[in-house]
Amino acid sequence: MAIFAVTGLVVKLVLLVLIFFSVVSWAIIFYKFLQVHRANRESIRFMDFFWKTKRFDAINEQLDRFGHSPLAVLFSEGYIEMKKLLGKGVQKEEAEIISTELGGIDNIARALRRATTSEIARLEKYLTFLATTGSTAPFIGLFGTVWGIMTSFKAIGETGSASLAVVAPGIAEALIATAIGLVAAIPAVIGYNHFQHKIRVLIGEMDSFSTEYLNVVQRTFSRK
């Protein structure tokens, strides 16, 4: 637009930075929306499937259907660890017994905790950029505005005329930087808060699934 064309070099740079922030923020918002939405949907489906299916090996075979669910990842990690322990038991001719005394349950719990941590990291990836955009974009915009007003006042001083017709366009050009800063920051802050909440819910679900999983493992294998 014409207003962008008439701004100074510094204001132009500020605007470019803000546009970059806005583009990347929206990309992250789209990305996170898809990721969190799929994770929620498939977690619900996975939990249904988990409670309906009694056998761990049958669940493990169907895990590909729940590729986006963090709970499926947790199950997979726990199952791999459990298999390792069972394999060790076979070697010791104590098949299908996971001894709590030997720390077998602890091993699975550690594996689940590790998987939870990595899933949280995966879900929270790029969110820091949204937080950064939300907090810094208005200030960057403000810097552009201050600079624009400074240069426009300088120009007014040189021309000598201080009428509204002379002062107003310069200030309008300068204020566009603040406007774009806010345009970049507002969706970023909203997106950050929304996804933080959704991820917190998913983390809660992962914690409760880990506990449930450990309980099931203990119930199933300790009895034998």
Binding site: S25, W26, A27, I28, I29, R122
Partner: peptide, 23 residues
Amino acid sequence: MSRTLKNNPRFGLMVASSLLLHL
């Protein structure tokens, strides 16, 4: 862990969508 990474949506595609939205 490789399974989860494979299933992530493509970030490049999202950047392209965002650019399209801005344009």
